[in-house]
């Protein structure tokens, strides 16, 4: 009998424990309801990509010397470099250049190794199309400059968390001249120079 009562008591204790845990969980969920939404209302608001954002690659046709380093450093040999030897100048002449962004992984190796800096990363990331072959950018498409988020009158640009002033977590309604937390690169440079 005593053993049975103890069993019942233990069972009741476990039940109370479980109820307590569920109550704690509920209070956590309830607490989350009072927090501000962290969402960015995408087509109307957009985050400003960071400085090292690796977006669609930009290509300058005239700088390219058709050395094919980009092809060699690419993990899948993606860039297509079409050139022919110009017999008179004894130089390679670029005829055509293309990168298929449906296959590119945006690792940035080509940009890193390009000897003439004719490749560069942009902040464009809206690459959706109705046909994947439209993502195969030729030299003309690669040469277009992306439209900056901050210049678009239809879009409210929002800063990313790392670019907000100290103590601020809300990018909405922030004045344009509010400085980010920490020192800016030029300030660091100044500091270094004054030290030396």
């Amino acid at each position: 009998m005593l053993k049975f009562l103890k069993q019942v008591g233990d069972y009741a204790k476990e039940t109370v424990q479980a109820a307590k845990y569920i109550g704690q969980g509920l209070s956590v969920t309830f607490d989350h309801m009072q927090r501000r939404p962290v969402t960015v209302q995408y087509p109307y608001e957009k985050l400003i990509p960071s400085e090292r954002f690796r977006g669609r690659i930009h290509f300058e046709f005239d700088k390219c010397i058709a050395c094919e380093v980009c092809v060699r450093v690419c993990p899948i040999n993606l860039p297509v470099v079409d050139w022919e030897m110009n017999k008179t100048t004894k130089k390679k002449q670029l005829k055509h250049y293309s990168i298929d962004f449906g296959v590119c992984i945006f690792c940035g190796n080509c940009v890193e190794y390009c000897p003439t800096n004719c490749l560069s990363m942009t902040e464009e990331y809206e690459l959706s199309t109705y046909d994947r072959h439209e993502l195969n950018y030729d030299s003309v498409a690669l040469g277009r400059l992306p439209y900056k988020v901050t210049d678009d009158p239809m879009v409210t640009p929002l800063r990313e968390l790392a670019y907000l002033p100290e103590g601020v977590t809300e990018p909405h309604g922030l004045p344009d001249n509010a400085q980010r937390a920490g020192l800016r690169p030029e300030e660091i440079l100044e500091q270094e120079q004054s030290k030396n």
Binding site: T29, H32, M33, R35, R36, P37, V38, T39, Q41
Partner: peptide, 10 residues
Amino acid sequence: KISAAAQQRI
């Protein structure tokens, strides 16, 4: 709406 609020959405 409540689900959104519980997940910090709108």
